[in-house]
Protein backbone atom coordinates (compact mmCIF):
# COMPACT_ATOMS: atom_id res chain seq x y z
CA UNK A 1 0.00 0.00 0.00
CA UNK A 2 1.39 3.37 -0.94
CA UNK A 3 0.30 6.79 0.30
CA UNK A 4 -2.18 7.41 -2.53
CA UNK A 5 -3.85 4.06 -1.86
CA UNK A 6 -4.08 4.86 1.82
CA UNK A 7 -5.77 8.15 0.92
CA UNK A 8 -8.17 6.42 -1.47
CA UNK A 9 -9.17 3.83 1.10
CA UNK A 10 -9.97 6.45 3.69
CA UNK A 11 -11.76 8.67 1.19
CA UNK A 12 -13.88 5.71 0.09
CA UNK A 13 -15.17 5.36 3.64
CA UNK A 14 -15.82 9.03 4.12
CA UNK A 15 -17.91 10.16 1.19
CA UNK A 16 -18.54 13.58 2.68
CA UNK A 17 -14.90 14.62 2.29
CA UNK A 18 -13.02 15.41 -0.87
CA UNK A 19 -10.03 13.25 -1.60
CA UNK A 20 -7.98 16.44 -1.41
CA UNK A 21 -9.02 16.89 2.22
CA UNK A 22 -8.10 13.32 3.08
CA UNK A 23 -4.74 13.97 1.45
CA UNK A 24 -4.25 16.95 3.74
CA UNK A 25 -5.26 14.89 6.78
CA UNK A 26 -2.75 12.15 5.98
CA UNK A 27 0.07 14.59 5.30
CA UNK A 28 -0.74 16.59 8.44
CA UNK A 29 -0.38 13.43 10.52
CA UNK A 30 2.88 12.41 8.88
CA UNK A 31 4.23 15.98 9.10
CA UNK A 32 3.35 16.16 12.77
CA UNK A 33 5.24 12.94 13.47
CA UNK A 34 8.20 14.22 11.45
CA UNK A 35 8.23 17.54 13.30
CA UNK A 36 8.09 15.80 16.64
CA UNK A 37 11.04 13.59 15.76
CA UNK A 38 12.95 16.59 14.42
CA UNK A 39 12.50 18.21 17.86
CA UNK A 40 13.80 15.04 19.45
CA UNK A 41 10.39 14.13 20.83
CA UNK A 42 8.98 10.66 20.98
CA UNK A 43 5.70 9.76 19.27
CA UNK A 44 3.77 7.09 21.08
CA UNK A 45 0.75 5.56 19.40
CA UNK A 46 -0.62 2.89 21.69
CA UNK A 47 -1.29 -0.43 20.00
CA UNK A 48 0.42 0.76 16.85
CA UNK A 49 3.94 1.55 17.93
CA UNK A 50 6.30 4.30 18.98
CA UNK A 51 8.64 6.45 16.92
CA UNK A 52 11.72 7.81 18.60
CA UNK A 53 15.12 9.20 17.73
CA UNK A 54 18.37 7.52 18.60
CA UNK A 55 21.68 9.30 18.61
CA UNK A 56 24.65 7.75 16.90
CA UNK A 57 28.07 8.96 18.06
CA UNK A 58 30.66 10.09 15.58
CA UNK A 59 32.93 7.27 14.54
CA UNK A 60 35.63 6.33 12.13
CA UNK A 61 34.22 4.13 9.45
CA UNK A 62 35.60 2.56 6.36
CA UNK A 63 34.56 2.73 2.80
CA UNK A 64 33.71 -0.93 2.33
CA UNK A 65 34.76 -0.85 -1.28
CA UNK A 66 38.16 0.77 -0.94
CA UNK A 67 38.91 0.09 2.72
CA UNK A 68 39.72 3.76 3.09
CA UNK A 69 39.10 5.35 6.50
CA UNK A 70 36.40 8.00 6.67
CA UNK A 71 35.11 9.93 9.64
CA UNK A 72 31.38 9.67 10.17
CA UNK A 73 29.78 12.59 11.99
CA UNK A 74 27.42 12.06 14.89
CA UNK A 75 23.84 11.80 13.75
CA UNK A 76 20.36 10.99 14.88
CA UNK A 77 18.38 8.19 13.38
CA UNK A 78 14.66 7.46 13.57
CA UNK A 79 13.57 4.28 15.26
CA UNK A 80 10.24 2.47 15.34
CA UNK A 81 9.24 0.07 18.06
CA UNK A 82 6.25 -2.08 17.21
CA UNK A 83 3.31 -1.76 19.56
CA UNK A 84 2.11 -4.66 21.65
CA UNK A 85 -1.17 -5.08 19.82
CA UNK A 86 0.50 -5.12 16.42
CA UNK A 87 3.13 -7.58 17.60
CA UNK A 88 0.44 -9.87 18.94
CA UNK A 89 -1.68 -9.65 15.82
CA UNK A 90 1.33 -10.54 13.69
CA UNK A 91 2.04 -13.65 15.67
CA UNK A 92 -1.27 -14.91 16.95
CA UNK A 93 -1.84 -17.47 14.17
CA UNK A 94 1.68 -18.77 14.46
CA UNK A 95 1.71 -21.00 17.51
Amino acid sequence: MIKSELIQRIAARNGHLYQRDVETIVSTILDEITLALARGDRVELRGFGAFSVKRREARTGRNPRTGEQVSVDEKSVPFFKTGKEMRERLNEAHG
Binding site: T28, E32, D41, R42, E44, L45, R46
Partner: peptide, 19 residues
Protein backbone atom coordinates in the same frame (compact mmCIF):
# COMPACT_ATOMS: atom_id res chain seq x y z
CA UNK B 1 11.92 17.76 30.45
CA UNK B 2 11.79 19.43 27.04
CA UNK B 3 11.46 16.10 25.31
CA UNK B 4 7.85 15.29 25.57
CA UNK B 5 5.76 12.57 24.07
CA UNK B 6 3.43 13.17 21.17
CA UNK B 7 0.26 11.08 21.21
CA UNK B 8 -2.87 10.54 19.15
CA UNK B 9 -4.41 13.57 20.84
CA UNK B 10 -1.62 15.81 19.51
CA UNK B 11 -2.06 14.42 16.01
CA UNK B 12 -5.81 15.01 16.23
CA UNK B 13 -5.13 18.54 17.40
CA UNK B 14 -2.89 19.17 14.39
CA UNK B 15 -5.61 17.92 12.04
CA UNK B 16 -8.17 20.08 13.84
CA UNK B 17 -6.00 23.18 13.47
CA UNK B 18 -5.10 22.51 9.86
CA UNK B 19 -8.41 21.37 8.40
Amino acid sequence: SAHHTVTRADLADAVHRRI
